[in-house]
Design a protein around this nucleic acid. Sequence first.
DNA 1: CGTCAATTTTACCAAACGGTCAAACATTTT
DNA 2: AAAATGTTTGACCGTTTGGTAAAATTGACG
Lengths: 201, 201
Amino acid sequence: MTEYATTRIQRKNQALIFEAALDVFSSFGFRGATLDQIASTAGLSKPNLLYYYPSKEAIHSAVLTKLLHTWLAPLRELDENGDPIEEILLYVINKLHAARDLPRESRLFANEIVQGAPRIKSILETDLRHLVEDKVRILRKWIKQGRLAKIDPYHLIFSIWSLTQHYADFDVQVQAVTGQETSFDEAEVFLNHLYRRMLAP
Amino acid sequence: MTEYATTRIQRKNQALIFEAALDVFSSFGFRGATLDQIASTAGLSKPNLLYYYPSKEAIHSAVLTKLLHTWLAPLRELDENGDPIEEILLYVINKLHAARDLPRESRLFANEIVQGAPRIKSILETDLRHLVEDKVRILRKWIKQGRLAKIDPYHLIFSIWSLTQHYADFDVQVQAVTGQETSFDEAEVFLNHLYRRMLAP
DNA sequence: CGTCAATTTTACCAAACGGTCAAACATTTT
DNA sequence: AAAATGTTTGACCGTTTGGTAAAATTGACG
């Protein structure tokens, strides 16, 4: 019996809580979410919830940190040795698919950041910043080599984040305005056109 | 003494409340904002606040509806008789300046929409939708005339919203990643490049 | 100045909230 | 099967929250 063993029940309930917390936090933000809501979504009682996590903050923090890695994965894949425009477009499309397939994750971070990122600011200033710095270096190199239009690499990355996550974070608005389900295929065609035109040297 | 006269005191306090509510709601969202917070920001007591508005909902609703007009003004100005690309770029720059000068308004709507727009969905589906439909018609005409690249006009408008509002709504992230104050001048250069390239027929 | 209406405050309420505790119940281990 | 450990629950607590009632204060006006 080692110190940090996790039982079958623990694993099951941790998973239930994680799903429920992602659901509720992404829908209502940290402040808008309640422990009762998370508990009932997970099919547990509130004290049972707090048996697995010491506090609401702890649940939120656990969900955020666990998902940050997933969320940043597409950017990590941007490959220095690939073709600049194809590499960037791959990243764009991957991010768009993430917005389509993982809208809860997108909204979870959107909710946090739009309110000043009080709980993950430090991560943004370290991990995210370092990752972006590395990719900016690559983009600058490509520009210097004349393989990419002369644009600000930071703003290029921001544009990819905003254009893709918009379809997840502001989906209600997109649907309200178009009167239809959001078409990610149309979005893909649009973004393809946009980035090919913009990025050509 | 007419029925609907507003006194000097009423006007002053309505303005104080409006400012305070915009501040607090845009920072913390509807659920995250408290009446005590709004009251103390306005320099009033909570019951005094509720002397002017019947409920928290009423304050939020008043702020949202009053600002919606301001918020949509730039799009309204898109002129059928102007030069397509210059008209669109004017809209882009106006929206970018709005993100710079009215970040609270931007975050107010961002907070509302990212959580499903429960309180303004109906407005989005009517007023906003009709406005966009009219502008989409203009964009389609321009495309048909060969004065604009063949792009989906809805996605063009979404792109403008997301790219510009990103600098207000996700400002913390932009600053965390760049380590600097957000440069709207750089953003303007970037967006100018992006849209001129993308929109050329 | 006195009167009436408008405004503000004090004291309060009920519900919702995050969280605790000890007892009850399950499960695993010996 | 007993003991030990792990899990769940019901009852509860203090605080915060949106909101109310009525008294006290201030301002408008003849």
